[in-house]
Amino acid sequence: MHFLNFRGVFQKWPTQILFVLAVSALIVSFQVIYQFGNLWQVSMSELKNRHYVSAYVDESISDEKLSGVALELEQIEGIDRVVYIDRVSFANAMEKRFPNLHQELSKVRNVNVLPRYFRLTVNSANQESALDQIVTRVSGLQGIDFVEANRKRFLGVIQAVTKLEKILWIFLGAVIVLMLFSFYYSVRIRVHEESRQLEILRELGATNWYLMSPFITQGLLLGGLAGALASLGFAFWGAPVVGTLASAFASQISSSSQALDFSISPHLSLLNIALPICYGLFTGLIGSFIASLKVRSSN
């Protein structure tokens, strides 16, 4: 019954296996929520600082004259980037980035002619007046049919995503609290069951650390096991879920904002696989440490 004595941890192994499975499920949930939230946070922080203006090309203008229009657009102060989106590349780009939109886009292509337009990136257009000036100047150019700079709709999307982020953070907090409570109660029950044994060891001169250490070992061991299991769970199940969620939301955002020019896809790095083990060890350590403090108070 000392720090390296693991016997007590596995005395009730069927219960402990169930406990490890439950905690690993919690860790996988945590990792899925965290990875998904983190993905959006990074993407949105990029998106929030930008503004996109779509300058639709007059259908009567020839392709040869388009380069001249592009040059004129580049010379307008405040426009950082000009990208010409022709019908085919628009469709292809969308299909490549969001494969799950393929069917939707195909349907659209069969019934509608896709537009030709210039997508203008305005990075410093936080002031509405500056944006209005750019829109007015672009609208006045020959070859431009109409200009769309629906900042409100775009901001609405960002607000919705920000709300989603907050909800995800609340979920994350709840999962962490659940994990801590799981470890706390698991260890607390063992402390209670072994209270007489602990009392005797104390009479034999055991220090608080000596009495607490097996319980902290229990937390670390079970946390590590649950974390390792969760790593596998995330690699084989969690990461694909994050990918599916990200694709689903990306399609929503792209259709709403019409301005998603970067990919949103999770990457299964070694760190992402190792993180669940760290979560397990950390929550196991904290939960069991708090629970084992009861040993001190019963002095």
């Binding site: 072994e194 060891l201 001169g205 055991a206």
Partner: peptide, 14 residues
Amino acid sequence: NENVFENVAAPLRI
């Protein structure tokens, strides 16, 4: 919960 050996060894372990 412990066997005879562990009981006798307990103070020495501590």
